[in-house]
Design a binder for these strands. Sequence first.
DNA 1: AACGTATGGATCGTTGAACAATTCGACAAG
DNA 2: CTTGTCGAATTGTTCAACGATCCATACGTT
Lengths: 234, 234
Amino acid sequence: MLHDFLWNVDNVVAGLSQDRPRLGRSSTAERVADILRDRISEGFFQPGQRLSEESISEGLGVSRNTLREAFRLLGHEGLLDHRLNRGVFVRLPSVEDVLDLYRVRRVLEGAAVRRKPSEEALAVIKEAVADARRAAAKDDWQGVGTANIRFHQALVSLNESPRIDEAMRQLLAELRLVFHVMENPRAFHEPFVERNLTLVGLIESGRIEEAAAYLDDYLDHAERLLIHAYEPNR
Amino acid sequence: MLHDFLWNVDNVVAGLSQDRPRLGRSSTAERVADILRDRISEGFFQPGQRLSEESISEGLGVSRNTLREAFRLLGHEGLLDHRLNRGVFVRLPSVEDVLDLYRVRRVLEGAAVRRKPSEEALAVIKEAVADARRAAAKDDWQGVGTANIRFHQALVSLNESPRIDEAMRQLLAELRLVFHVMENPRAFHEPFVERNLTLVGLIESGRIEEAAAYLDDYLDHAERLLIHAYEPNR
DNA sequence: AACGTATGGATCGTTGAACAATTCGACAAG
DNA sequence: CTTGTCGAATTGTTCAACGATCCATACGTT
């Protein structure tokens, strides 16, 4: 019987190995990094701001050494800028950075639309689009933004590569830094809600080259809009 | 005059900002990380091997805390595996990892060949090919390997994106781990020397689609060869 | 007004020691 | 052969301390 197979001891044990990563996943430094990452992406710590070792270690109740380990983690994720003997700062992306982020997006998302999408992956994408439209209908621009980001994350996941997923996650985190510097990040995502819908339609109907061309235009437009509205205070 | 523009004070000062990263670049932790990175990529520390905090910190003459910071750096580069309360290990890529590395290569290198190459970038690529052929003629398989890696790094640099260059650097570092586990990594690169030459020819003559197809076949072949020869001891 | 020097405070970089927490192997008991 | 227990070894984390570096300020010189 199928039931017997599923609950066979060996099979259960083998399936357990998937959860292995979750085991090692906890150390004070990593948990501190999680907290800081959240604070940064929600804008509580603003780009350019300096994070004092003393005050933060005291505030979180951890030692300076542990906090420094957390800083190293976030440094390699591109969220923090480590300047020798001066401390760590929340990264303030330059215009050049924004241009490069969009170069990477063109490569990653461009490769994604050229792949034959699986049913499940497509479902996730369409759900993100639907969420964005619902949020837009309710004038919930915060919700539009997060749904839009989830849309692009899901789009890239068509590549079916864990490393590319991770790279996209980091890229979007960096992009969030840019949004926090803009005057009105809310309005930025709005014009792209309908484009997302069109793009999904092209992908679903297998018109790959059209989808790729549409995406290129999409990204060009978004980049231009963003660069125009972005003027980090030097 | 052009001369006046080039040496205008403001322009010179502006150009200086490019060198800024080099200024802060030095701290004990980072230098330790550099040393360990070299040791790992040259195979002195073998994949799967555990790196003892005590012995290494003593051997290098730095404190445990500083060494731990270096470990965090390399951990995020994918070279070290940090297991809670068990220490850090030189990463031993799984077969799944190898498959994923090649997925990323297809995306990154595929995007590269579709771009119109600049003269300088093309020159760097051709030099790498020439080096590989020279090394092969002298039966210097070590040299063939490094030249081959340099070839792919240069190929990806056609994307003209610092972030993509960095990602490729990390990817190749991970791939080197795989080579260190193989029985005879030397022979692996050999069959691809001539393919590199062909690929460059296609790129140079602007036959983009042919180049892309040739690259896909190239990577499929390399991946199959590698997976076949790769059997990490579990 | 621009520049060089001097000074002091604040913060980071690094160390060494200490203790708690966890892992792992060995060994005994069932 | 499996399970429970113990102890050594190693990591995780904290703490205090000191030197090094940066930054702002002030002062005197040209």
